[in-house]
């Protein structure tokens, strides 16, 4: 399913993408003028909502092209179609924060984002924080240093959210960290260590 190419250029248009774009933009002229829309509707077959849509996603600085059912969330696209399984599925309803990624630098719940709606935006997942042969991101290292997890399932979401928390300027003290990290649940209740990790990483990220 995955068609991953590093040299994918934004301007390139595949046949499938061209057809997809034509179909979707055609919807507006059809309904913009009611009479023309009715006439056209009689001659055109009804659109198939389950036909795969060609979706291009920019993730961790690389372009990925995948054919997706339009219902696919960004989280499922990452995990099931692109093979980036660092982002976790907890509740799948925007309540636990395990799926947190950065979209255009701001922390976002991938489970409540349609993949098709994330096109044109830059997505950063936990896999994009450090190179395989390089040092860990200061937030990753801080979570290791402070043992800020037990089972680890919520950790990628915690780390991505914590980076967002620091970047947004909401990690000024422990109370602020607790308040602005409240969207990330930890069933092992590693919260005191998570707060300590965010405090340490903030100094390094801003240092």
């Amino acid at each position: 399913m995955t068609n991953h190419s590093d040299d994918e250029r934004p301007a390139s248009v595949s046949r499938r993408r061209f057809l997809g774009a034509t179909a979707s933009t055609a919807a507006f002229p059809l309904v913009g003028v009611a009479a023309a829309g009715q006439a056209a509707a009689q001659t055109m077959p009804p659109p198939d909502p389950q036909a795969p849509v060609d979706v291009k996603l920019s993730i961790n600085g690389e372009m990925y092209r995948v054919g997706l059912d339009v219902r696919t969330t960004l989280l499922d696209a990452l995990r099931d179609h692109i093979g980036l399984t660092g982002s976790k599925k907890g509740c799948d309803h925007g309540q636990c924060g395990a799926c947190t990624v950065l979209v255009d630098g701001r922390r976002t719940l991938a489970c409540l984002t349609l993949a098709v709606a994330a096109q044109g935006r830059e997505v950063t997942t936990v896999e994009g924080l450090a190179r395989a042969d390089g040092p860990l991101h200061p937030m990753q290292q801080a979570f290791v240093d402070h043992d800020a997890f037990q089972c680890g399932y919520c950790t990628p979401g915690q780390i991505m959210s914590a980076i967002g928390c620091v970047k947004e300027g909401h990690a000024g003290n422990d109370d602020a960290i607790r308040e602005y990290m409240s969207g990330n649940l930890c069933r092992c209740a590693a919260y005191p260590n998570i707060v300590a990790a965010v405090r340490q990483a903030k100094l390094q990220m801003e240092g």
Binding site: F28, V31, A41, P47, P49, V70
Partner: peptide, 25 residues
């Protein structure tokens, strides 16, 4: 989740008339 048609609005005016029209069909 049930299947749906997805499109992107090009302007508020066009989107409003498109959705108003599709409410009947």
């Amino acid at each position: 989740m049930r299947p749906f048609l997805y499109d992107r609005a090009t302007s508020a005016d066009l989107a409003a008339s498109a959705l108003a029209t599709s409410a009947d069909a």
